[in-house]
Design a protein around this nucleic acid. Structure first.
Lengths: 226, 226
DNA sequence: GTCTATAGGCTGATAGAC
DNA sequence: GTCTATCAGCCTATAGAC
């Protein structure tokens, strides 16, 4: 148990070196995802974390390095789960449905900010990222490719391009979650008819669309075709 | 024909008030889409346009208003074409294929930067946009909704949610084009296997995925079902 | 480890000459 | 209409006290 030696902290909460690091990571994750790298001044991150802004340079070596630490942490988790799924022995269509579900689930419960963050990075062309970080989305794509290729081999899917399939699946999911804020805005302003779509409904929608959209049409066109 | 009264321009090109406006719009469109609003200093826009940076305030009333003018111009064109398509009497699946094609085509030939710009705005939640501008994407969604609902009514599509369908179609398309730069980067670095996917290939992929994914499965389940 | 104070860079806007 | 020169504002990073 950590003893607090100096009691001059605003709240009574524990705050050691590790606590400061974590608080900065958490605050940064949310802020960078919501507003983008450029639009977040370090003092805002520090304030949200309840620490002094000089701590960013002290613990991470600057704003940019804090950002990289955040992106790596967030992405690492996704990659790990995606690669695990790619090794599943279940039928490919089922595995793909699971992958879609887990991305949606992670966006809702896990880290609700990673879709926006991913998209921002993709838009920037990865200019801010180093080699290691750039490899992460590639590994997710690779996992999807393996699942889709197995589905084709086993005759469950028609002969689609696995890379393009990955783009359409991941793209439609990221887009939905990244645009959630805009839909809320439009809805609150009374400009969106009906009710706000639920994440689970959308996940199901994509699952259906992809399952049926990739399905082999005839009984045996997964072997050589004209 | 405009007469050039003062010949002290760098290049021999014409440049009147309208020319300055246009040059700024063109330069801004490309730069904002490529790097995002915050990452583009006004002097860069001015330099690219070949005019003085003070012209931005003079002609548009500031950086922000230049940005809004650009977004409105780009979006207006898309909306017009989408709404026209929604009125087409062709079979719904065909119309949807045309819509997918025209978005892809516009992204390639028209303004190759608008997908990135749209996505950035969506990420920001439309914070920078005014009411009128916010209405544009909504009208595109509405157009898709009409096409999909007609397809359901006519028995070509299964009973999908038109709004969610819109999100998945537009989302996957925007994502592909917005991430083009990242793919190029990865490819150049030799980290992407195979060859870079062509826009036309992806458009076709989405057309197939959507057409087959939305298709009614049985002969008559478009009437009331369980 | 944490904080305050400040240095130094970059940005968008504009006054005023032409 | 266009340009130059300049300004105030905001940003990140850090030296040095504690």
């Amino acid at each position: 148990m950590t003893i607090i030696t100096r009691g001059r902290r605003r709240t009574g909460r524990r705050r050691d070196a590790a606590g400061t690091r974590e608080a900065l990571l958490a605050a940064g994750t949310e802020l960078f995802a919501e507003r983008g790298y450029d639009a977040v001044p370090v003092w805002v991150i520090a304030e949200k974390a309840g620490v002094n802004k000089a701590m960013i340079s002290y613990h991470f070596g600057g704003k940019r390095k804090l950002y990289l630490a955040i992106v790596n942490a967030t992405l690492g988790e996704i990659v790990e789960r995606a690669e695990k799924l790619a090794e599943s022995p279940s039928p490919a269509p089922l595995v793909l449905r699971e992958l879609i579900h887990f991305i949606g689930d992670m966006a809702v419960r896990g880290n609700p900010h990673f879709p926006a963050m991913m998209l921002r990075e993709a838009l920037a062309g990865g200019k801010r990222l180093e080699r290691e970080t750039m490899a992460h989305p590639l590994r997710v794509a690779e996992a999807v490719r393996r699942i889709v290729e197995r589905g084709i081999r086993e005759g469950a899917f028609r002969r689609v391009d696995p890379w393009l399939t990955h783009v359409s699946v991941v793209g439609s999911l990221l887009f939905f979650f990244a645009t959630a804020r805009m839909r809320e805005r439009l809805f609150t302003a009374g400009r969106l008819p009906g009710r706000l779509p639920e994440a689970t409904d959308y996940v199901k929608h994509v699952q259906e669309l992809v399952t049926q959209g990739l399905a082999r049409r005839n009984a045996d066109d997964h072997t050589r075709e004209g």
